[in-house]
Design a binder for these strands. Structure first.
Lengths: 208, 208
DNA sequence: GACGAGATGACAGCTTGATGACAACGTCGG
DNA sequence: CCGACGTTGTCATCAAGCTGTCATCTCGTC
């Protein structure tokens, strides 16, 4: 198993008992732990303990390493309840194990989502959140749509019709509806001059 | 093509250029990408670029989505060499495409972890069990499907149509059916604010 | 000083989503 | 075959707050 994992370009440390594992975990930082459910407790002991118990202790101690448990088919409840992130039931194909491990490691780097930034403005389009200097702003749908459009064209002058095309569908609103949305946006931006008026043309996202 | 794939109970997002594709790939997580080899680079540009180049970039960036390339007969070496997982030569029957896509998606399901977690939520997709803080929740099929979709996109805003595409097949339900399912889910989550409403957009799995 | 473009504040209609009730449907057990 | 039950879609209702419109005001320009 170690060999197989290594062949997938993973760096593997291999220990044969729980105590050694604990030591290694204190010494190094790992991206992932593969844990057999039945494991000797000490290097020389013959009888095995349930690794799930140890895992629970680890979690209580604050270890947050992703852990994948190798579970036998006839085991009762799998290790999920005690803080494992994944489990594989024996017997399994090594490829599957590798995939799962890679999955776990990759999942680590989660939380990336596309963010539009300008000045101290951050718009997380996936979360639909906007922050100014880190403070969350509660924007309505229209406000969000308009600001999003502006943020994709920073420093560019954007006409009202352009905004209407992009943010309103079908029913063309009255004359100063856009202005009103801009106004509400500006208010929520707490008086910053980020959204500027370009007389006779439209609006522009710009610093001072 | 989009329609055909949808008729095979697949949830499809459709974009017309590489840039949009890139954005979508950052925003959502997909099980599979179908890529035409000749594709405009930006929404408004006329001339096309070879999608294979973009694909290579994606791979270098670490995108691991399975990709199926639609290749013209007279193209030289198909896209396989650059990280595609499959290709189909035009002209092709839609059925073939669907089969290939299903194949790709399924193949991917092998390596996918059966456990989804968020906060104190645990979903074992293999056993069809969901626990909150260790307590088993009795979810119905629909509730499970919706929650599963949310769990694969934690913190991301999910629209109702997206949920319908993913969790309902064929017969489009009425307007507030989704709301109702969310409501029942929330009730079973015992008043936690884990499923949040994002007015005007949809729902989001998020803490606080 | 007149004019027009844009800002502002108030306001009402209406959309949106939450909620509870209920009927249709399928399943299971007797 | 019948009845009980759980699931799921639909409807009516309600409150909240979004959004569009209007009237008025400000400011810069000619």
């Amino acid at each position: 198993m170690t060999a197989a994992l290594r062949s997938a370009a993973l760096a593997v440390d291999d220990v044969g008992d729980l105590m050694s594992a604990d030591v290694q975990l204190s010494v190094n930082s790992y991206d992932c732990v593969v844990l057999d459910r039945r494991l000797p407790e000490r290097p020389d002991s013959v009888d095995t303990v349930d690794a799930v118990v140890a895992l629970r202790e680890w979690r209580e101690k604050g270890r947050e390493v992703p852990v994948l448990i190798l579970s036998a088919l006839d085991d009762e409840r799998p290790g999920l309840l005690s803080g494992a992130d994944d489990y594989v039931i024996k017997p399994f194909k090594v490829d599957v194990l590798i995939l799962r491990v890679l999955n776990l490691v990759r999942r680590r780097g989660v939380g990336r989502s596309p963010v539009l930034r300008y000045d101290d403005l951050e718009m997380d389009t996936a979360r639909r959140e906007v922050r100014r200097a880190g403070v969350l702003l509660g924007l309505t749908a229209k406000e969000f749509a308009v600001l999003e459009y502006l943020l994709t064209r920073p420093e560019h002058v954007v006409t009202r019709t352009e905004l209407i095309d992009a943010c309103w569908d079908g029913d063309v609103p009255g004359s100063n509806t856009v202005d009103q949305t801009i106004r509400r946006l500006r208010r929520k931006l707490h008086g910053s001059q980020l959204i500027q008026t370009v007389p006779g043309h439209g609006y522009r996202l710009s610093r001072e």
